[in-house]
Design a protein around this nucleic acid. Structure first.
Lengths: 234, 234
DNA sequence: CCTTTTGAACTGACTGGTCAGTGCAAAAAC
DNA sequence: GTTTTTGCACTGACCAGTCAGTTCAAAAGG
């Protein structure tokens, strides 16, 4: 009934886990990576807690105390790791959309390399979208909820990120039109948005109302909508 | 930009309960209709103010003071007319989704009466959806943002309303499959959700990023996605 | 070995501000 | 005369962000 999934990421070291290395930084800067395993783990926990809570309740209704509690961390730790609540959220968005964009791009390129048609590429991207939503349902939910909001601090960030993701779809559509594989009548930006929405909403409904169905099943249903006039009258 | 009045039926009496002296609902039967024009107008203004603000900022980030101010009304008036902020919002949702459902149903029935095919009916519903979003973009925005949220007071309300709307689309799809006009391979609930999402996202993108385009234009683009395999391999 | 030092990471009580909702007397509208 | 609206002061809860203090593993020193 509800979208419950964990934004599980690969198992990571537990709290007391191997302290592989201290970030005894030379140069005193904060090593973003390549050190600080402990900090990394904390940030990861905070991401996961924030994503699920904000997906459930929305940004404003989610308190920093709740985030800290779900992450199993003190409130001060949140502010030690992130400048503010909205900075935490913005980094979250950036990270999540980055994953999605990379995934779509990879799907398109893989298909091209394998000599697939543009429709095959679209189909592969639909699947990539489904896989993403299957893995990160809470993030997807949150993304949709915030996407068209105005008057928010991160609105411009979100716009840019959206454009990056949709551009991947548009690219494939345009190539298809140019090569004659797709009807030249199609409206590239609008069709891209429509496909995006089709996958998004269908997948959220899948997760929310028929979670027992398989990804293949859902993919097959969406594939049918892709065929037809869009594919140049086939 | 906003939702029209709530012309329909009995104007829930419990509203006045919390404010002002004991006009307790249980007492004598209150005139359901008695001279409500003024009050009606106030509620209308409050609806409009709330819809636009919540679409912009979200429910929690929108204050009652803001709603009152945008409506050009005193704060006390909000509470004279609605029991609470969330009741105001819930009535808003109910009313808006009701309009959408009625509009979809009307489109389907009109097409049937005119002897159109099921695909024609779907197409008419796509257009009805676009007309709705064109008229009430803020409401649509707000609806999408709240639809998959969990842990909210109005979640169950929203679920029921969503089902009513999607059911109209499912009905047409099922009839089409039964009559052989549509492929029996299609997955009715999933396809309905996908179509819903296609229109929703495409239309929001239209409003947000290419508002200069005409409704006919957008409708034509979406119609193409409807054709093809879904239409039974025509 | 063992002891001391260091400082990044973390903690949680506290603060200053915000906001939903109340109460009421008086004015306005009907 | 009744319903509706106004204006405003008030309260109690809640919450983002702060900060003085604690923890602890690794480095430095013996």
């Amino acid at each position: 009934m509800t979208i419950r999934a964990m934004e599980s990421s690969k198992a990571m070291d537990g709290v007391g886990g191997s302290a592989v290395d201290g970030s005894r930084g030379t140069g005193g800067g904060k090593a973003v990576d390549g050190g600080g395993t402990r900090r990394q783990a904390t940030r990861q926990k905070l991401y996961e807690a924030a994503v699920s809570l904000i997906a459930e309740q929305g940004f404003s209704a989610t308190t920093v105390d709740e985030i800290a509690e779900r992450a199993g961390v003190a409130k001060g730790t949140v502010y030690y790791n992130f400048a503010s609540k909205s900075v935490l959220f913005e980094e979250l968005l950036r990270h999540g959309v980055g994953l999605l964009t990379a995934s779509l791009r990879e799907a398109a390129e893989r298909t091209a390399k394998d000599g697939g048609s543009k429709v095959d590429a679209l189909d592969a991207m639909v699947r990539a979208g489904l896989v993403f939503i299957d893995r990160y349902p809470a993030f997807t939910q949150l993304y949709v909820a915030e996407l068209w909001r105005t008057n928010r601090a991160w609105q411009s960030t979100l716009l840019v990120l959206r454009q990056e993701a949709v551009a991947v779809v548009e690219r494939v559509l345009r190539d298809g039109v140019d090569s004659g594989e797709l009807s030249e009548e199609i409206d590239v930006p609008l069709t891209a948005a429509a496909l995006f929405g089709m996958v998004l909403v269908a997948a959220l409904d899948w997760k929310a109302f028929q979670p027992e169905r398989s990804l293949d099943d859902v993919h097959a249903a969406l594939s049918r909508l892709l065929q037809g006039r869009v594919a140049g009258g086939r």
